[in-house]
Amino acid sequence: MLDGRYSQWAELIYLLVLKELKVRYKRSVLGFLWAIANPLMFALVYWVAFKFIMRVQMENYIVFILTGLFPWAWLSLSVTQGTGSFINNLSLVRRVTLPKLILPLSNVMQEMVHFVFAIPVVFFIIVITGESIHPLLLLWQIPLMLVLQTLFVFPLTVIGAVLNVYVRDVQYLVGILFSAFFFITPMVYPLSIVPENYQQYFKLNPAYWLIDSWRNVFSGNILPLAHLAWVLGSIAGFSLLAAWIYHRLASRIAELV
């Protein structure tokens, strides 16, 4: 049996995510349609840019780029926005007794929801560009990847959020770090265009394995073991680091936000 508190917290996270989504779209004409229109427009822009302007010579580049960019958006938006999750929710941190980790977690979940809305867009593009979809594999691999990426992103968000309470410069550093990783991580380009003797370094980047896992899943492959190992290893490493930092620094968060 689950402790009643966990299901209560789950409800609270649900309401916090719902709040963010409502607040984001409430005053727009299209409302929730934006959740799907946004990734679709995004896909179109990239398609036009790379198909007709940059003219990248890669087979089905649009699918390649979208299967990388949507998971990346989830990762980078969660961490960059979640870094502010304590200082931007001052009244929740200071004025009510609440398990504080619910705040960064609801940030991660909210971006996950946006990612989930983007999944049909990816399939739509896959189908209209004439590739095939493998429903059976997707059926269990997509939920698996959703869980893995949540576990991957959450500790990073916690680290950012806690450190940012102590040193506010962290939020800017995180922003810069993610713009750097946008290019360091083979995402808008394949790893194969990197000179071969540098490729080993690019493969030390956990984000590469996460993004490439999604690419494998979307293109109907079984998740390779190396990918799974890297992602799980990163999750373990990030979680330990986050737990250590949180354990050491969390007790004073309420008075420093």
């Binding site: 409800e11 609270l12 709040k19 607040v23 009510v96």
Partner: peptide
């Protein structure tokens, strides 16, 4: 207004605030 969001209605905030409490 702690635990309330200005853009949500009073009714919606009852849920949010209640869950926080």
């Amino acid at each position: 207004g702690s635990g309330c969001h200005p853009d949500l209605t009073g009714r919606e905030n009852i849920f949010l605030n209640g869950a926080i409490l």
